[in-house]
Design a protein around this nucleic acid. Structure first.
Lengths: 210, 210
DNA sequence: TCAGACATGTAAGTCGTTACATGATTCA
DNA sequence: TGAATCATGTAACGACTTACATGTCTGA
């Protein structure tokens, strides 16, 4: 029973970055993590409440030009829990790949159905690939410069000094951002290569028959 | 609102293969689909009930040497629904990759933490890779022979003639099985390559400092 | 002035897992 | 005889999404 609580720890990890409102967290995930993570408000706000209830985060009200909002900070206890979670082995994700299951289920259908599925998949991956490559160019440049692209600098703004670096506590940030993206790129390249291989194999063996 | 209903369609797709009991379906998924799909009994049995309720499957009681069991078959209506679903575009899976999020969240931690995460990931992938390669050898051989490995032949037994093929209605089965596995293999190779690239990059830039 | 961003939440429903519960049959 | 496999289910819980609900502020 129990304890995936991923949302819980991801929020804690982002608060460990800097204090934020629920809205900020949502935005940050959309801008910087969307390739591999998502959260809905329906998860987010209740989880923030629970985090405060457990003493892992604290909440204060902030006025930002008349409009007020809740800003959450991680507590010492929260920090400890987050660090402990980071040390635990990640659990193997339950396998559920819809494309693959569709492809498998096409085995008893005419070959052209399998091929159609693959072509659709290939096109979807190709589109995604272009987006990734664009981001990669921007990030690679930034990494060489030792910073982050402006959009990201902006989302992560407050916790940084007025300059680009606080000097003392150097971190991996830009490199980790870049490498995270590289993971996505290599994964897509593998899928594209697979599509080509699979389409060719099916055509060789009976695409005509279908 | 509504309608992932993946379990629903996967079961329908398997029943389209041949009539089966809930237990059979579970076994088939474990043996042949475990790399990319899973179902629990808690999902399976209630879904089978609903399928029958909707007239997409029918149930009969079968005696198998004194022990009785329910065997489900797909109906014409069920077949139509399954085919319709196969034609729909697969929805983009919601992105949730725990390893990547952990890695991202390590950006503010000492570099050695990021590297540790990667090494753990790499080892996990490497183990999985060995299993895949073993299966690949077996399957590749079978594909060349035009059949399936004995374990799979057994799980899929009844619907086949007494020989290896019913002659008339040739399908892609062996090739699709093989290609499905190839997808997994190429994906893992990409992840291993990424781990190497990422570890090297982090070491270059400050592994010492950590 | 009005669209779009900022901002916070709830309700209902689906999806899915785990643990529990039960019992027959087979084979070493 | 007792462990493994066959076989079917339910209860409780947790995770997650979508749609709904509501209101403010900023800038073109």
């Amino acid at each position: 029973m129990a304890a995936p609580r991923k949302t819980w720890f991801v929020i804690l990890g982002l608060l460990n970055w800097r204090p934020m409102s629920g809205y900020d967290i949502k935005k940050l995930i959309e801008v910087a993590l969307s390739y591999f993570w998502s959260e809905s408000y329906g998860q987010l706000y209740p989880t923030l409440d629970r985090l405060v209830g457990e003493g892992l985060a604290s909440r204060r009200t902030e006025k930002r030009g008349g409009r007020s909002r809740y800003v959450y900070s991680i507590t010492a206890r929260g920090k400890r829990q987050f660090l402990a979670w980071m040390k635990e082995p990640a659990d193997i994700p339950r396998a559920r790949n819809e494309l693959q299951v569709r492809f498998f289920l096409s085995a008893r259908l005419p070959t052209r159905e399998s091929i159609r599925l693959l072509e659709e998949y290939r096109e979807q991956q190709r589109r995604q690939y272009e987006l990734y490559r664009d981001s990669e160019k921007v990030l690679a440049l930034a990494v060489r410069r030792g910073g982050l692209p402006d959009e990201l600098e902006e989302v992560l703004r407050d916790e940084r000094g007025s300059g680009r670096s606080r000097g003392t506590e150097r971190t991996n940030e830009p490199m980790v951002f870049y490498l995270t993206l590289r993971h996505g790129i290599l994964a897509i390249e593998a899928r594209l290569a697979w599509c080509d291989e699979a389409i060719a194999a099916l055509r060789r063996r009976g695409g005509r028959r279908a």
